Each structure stands twice: as C-alpha cells, then as structure tokens.
Amino acid sequence: MVLDPFTLLVLSATMAAASALYLVAEWSSVRERSLLQWSAGFAIIAVGCVLALLRSSGYALIGIWFSNGLLIAAHGLFLAGVAEFTRARLPRAWWLLALVWLAMLFLPDGPWWSKAMLSIQSLSIALITLRAGLLLRPHGGVLSPGAAQLRFVLLAHGLFYLAKAGSIVVPDAVVSLASFSGVAILVSLLEGVMAIMLLAMSMTGTERHRREELIAQIAARDPLTALDNRRALYLRAPALLERASPASPGALLLIDIDHFKQVNDLHGHDAGDRLLVTLSDLIRGALPHGALAARLGGDEFVILLRGVSGATVQALGQHLREAFAEQARAMFATPEPVSLSIGAALFDRSDLELSHWLKQADEALYASKRKGRDRMELVPLQPELAYMLGLA
C-alpha cells in the first residue's frame, strides 16, 4: 500500500472513528466525562479528515480552512478532557485561539498563504497539546502508568507540531495545502496516524487505572462510616507497626459503644447507624497526622497511632469519650447512658503483628467494661522503658 496523502487521510479518518467508538464504549462502563470529551475529539478528527479529501476537488474553504479548524477544535477537546481528568480549571483565554483561526479567513491569497495557514494551525495545536501534557503532572505522588503514557504522547505530539510550525520558515520549503505537496505535510499525516493510535490507547489506560483505584478504595472502605474496614486495616497497619521503636512508640485503641443495643431497640437501627456515623466523625476529626482509623464491625472501632506517649493516648481517649457521651445524650434518650469503653495498648516493638496488639487492647477493653464502662484502660510499655520515656 502506497502511503500517499489520500491513503493516510482515509486511514486517519478510520482510526479516529474507531477510537471515538472505543472511548464511548469505555465511557459506558467508567462514566467519566473526560472519556466523552476525548471521544468527541476523535470524532471531529474523523470528520475533518473526510472533509480534507475535498480540497483536491477545489473546495478550498471546506477542505483546507474548515478541516484544519476542526483539527484545532479536536485538540481543544483533548485539553478539556485532560482538565476534567485532573480537576483543573482552564482560563477562558483559550477561546482566543478560535478568534485567531477566524482571522485566517482574511489572509490575502498568495505564495505564502499555505505556509502561514499551516504555521498558525501548527502553533495552535502545539500550544493546546503541550498545555494538556503539562496538566498531567504528579501532585504529591506519582502518575499512573496510563497517565504517564498520555503525558508523554501529548508532549511529544505538541513538540512535533511546534517543530512543524518552525519548519515552515526554512528557505525553499515547499508547502501546498491544496495539493498536499511538501515534506512537512506528508510527515504530519504520518505522525497523525501514529498519534491517533497512541492517544486513544493511553487515554483508555488512564481512565481504566482510575476506575481500578476507585474500586480498590470502595473495597477498603466501610460503607456506612467511610473509615477503613477490617481488610484495609490489616493491609495498612504493618507499615505503621514497622515504624515503632523505643524512641517512638505507637498505640492501638480499641473502642466499643456502651449500651449500643438500647439505641437500636428503642429508636431503631437507623438511629444506631446515625450514632455510628457520629462516632466515626469524632474519630476522624481527632485523628492526628499519620494515624489509622477503622471500623472492625458492629460498634467496634480501632485507632492506630505512631510516635505517641501514654499521656497523649489518655488525652485522646478522654476527648473521644466526653465528646461522644455529650452527643449521644443529645441525640437519644436511653435508660442507661450511651458511652465509650476503650482498651489501649502502647507498643515499641516492630516484630509483632497487628493481631498481637489487638489482643492486648481487647483485654484492656474488657477490663474497662468490668470496671463500670465509660472509661479507658491502658496497657503501658514495659516498666523500665516506660520509666525512661516518662510514661509511667
């Protein structure tokens, strides 16, 4: 197959249409708006490529000016999709590119017309595409593989158009938009075919990775309280436990609601759910940086702290008990006061698993229940270490 301009345009139109349909199919399962914007961009490219075929029949306005304008609009949709994906807001100044393209209608016809048209089109696409690539930069983390690939493709695509715009000023460079003659045009068509394929693949991978992350987050969250669930706690806790040392001990708090059954029996299970959400909000608000909080199930919650002292743990437990008791009294009337019992264990060893410290805290929790509820029992560090750290 000869890769002449006509063949490349037909190939580009076919691939762009296929990419548009593929991204719509992805949107049907992912439901991300950026996929629709990217799909619309490819659909516009497909239409623009078909219209570009008309220039050889003498339809210059539709085949050259309008089709190239559609290519700029398509890249604008790519930028809008990236902005949607990154939750970025684009200034309205980007609409000025449309005015620039409208001004091209008034360019005087002459030997430099094709070069001027191609240069302005290339600069417009380069600015849009490079901006889209720069929006995909890490914010306090790393890009997903799909997003990193999309960023690379967009930046490479933008740099190509920037170089293409610069090549127009090369002496003796032959450019004729009407007859598709000139090395710059042929190379651009070849690059366009490759870019369509790579952009579609990386756009799909970008959103698919986000969908997988969302599914993982949902699987790790308790649906009622939005805290970590038991599974997430066991996955995340080892990294925190490994940081425990005699110089920086950690703590595990096991929290249980006293007389919770009364709330369910007297006011219904919806009331019990409201009470659980209230406690989870209090925990979330009191949680220091780097700590973990999870709902184990029922009315039982866990907090994992790092770099704390016994006094800090006592203060946190007292704050939670007092704040929760006050809110519970205001929400529901019960024969017995609804309060919190807490069992806590300090730890300074990194070689023991979460289950060991949960057992320690569980024994302390039952001790607080036996001693009348609405209190916290703390299992301290070894006596000699507690004395050295001033925790005894």
Rank of each mutant, 00 (worst) to 15 (best):
P108E: 07
P138W: 07
A315W: 02
A293K: 05
G146E: 03
T86K: 12
A333L: 15
V169W: 13
L177P: 01
L320S: 02
A116I: 10
S34H: 08
P108L: 01
H259D: 13
P249H: 09
Y387T: 11
D299S: 12
L199M: 12
A219C: 15
E213Q: 15
H269M: 03
N264Y: 06
R230M: 13
N229P: 15
D222E: 14
A156L: 11
L186Q: 10
G140F: 12
R349F: 01
L135M: 12
G298H: 09
L304M: 14
V379Y: 05
G81F: 07
L282M: 02
L320Y: 00
L105C: 10
D228H: 15
L9C: 11
T278M: 13
F6A: 13
I44H: 09
I44R: 01
H289L: 14
A247V: 13
S341I: 13
L53H: 09
P337Q: 08
A239S: 14
A244S: 10
D374R: 00
W38G: 00
H209D: 15
R151M: 07
V50K: 01
H269W: 14
D362I: 04
M117E: 09
F301C: 05
I215W: 14
R321S: 02
E242P: 01
K371D: 12
F42M: 09
A392M: 03
A25P: 02
G41M: 07
L190S: 01
M15H: 06
L61Q: 12
H319Q: 07
R55M: 07
A165L: 06
A126I: 06
L240K: 10
Y234R: 08
W27M: 02
R274N: 14
A98C: 13
A244C: 06
I125K: 03
L53T: 04
L90I: 00
S119N: 12
R221G: 14
V2I: 11
R131D: 08
A93D: 13
L123T: 03
L123P: 03
S119H: 11
D256P: 07
G58P: 00
A126M: 00
S202M: 03
K115T: 01
W95Q: 11
L186T: 07
A293M: 11
L70S: 02
D374G: 08
V175R: 06
L90Y: 08
L198G: 03
T206P: 04
L346A: 03
P223G: 14
L365N: 05
A73S: 13
V183M: 12
L36E: 10
A195W: 02
A173M: 13
R131Q: 08
L354R: 05
L266V: 10
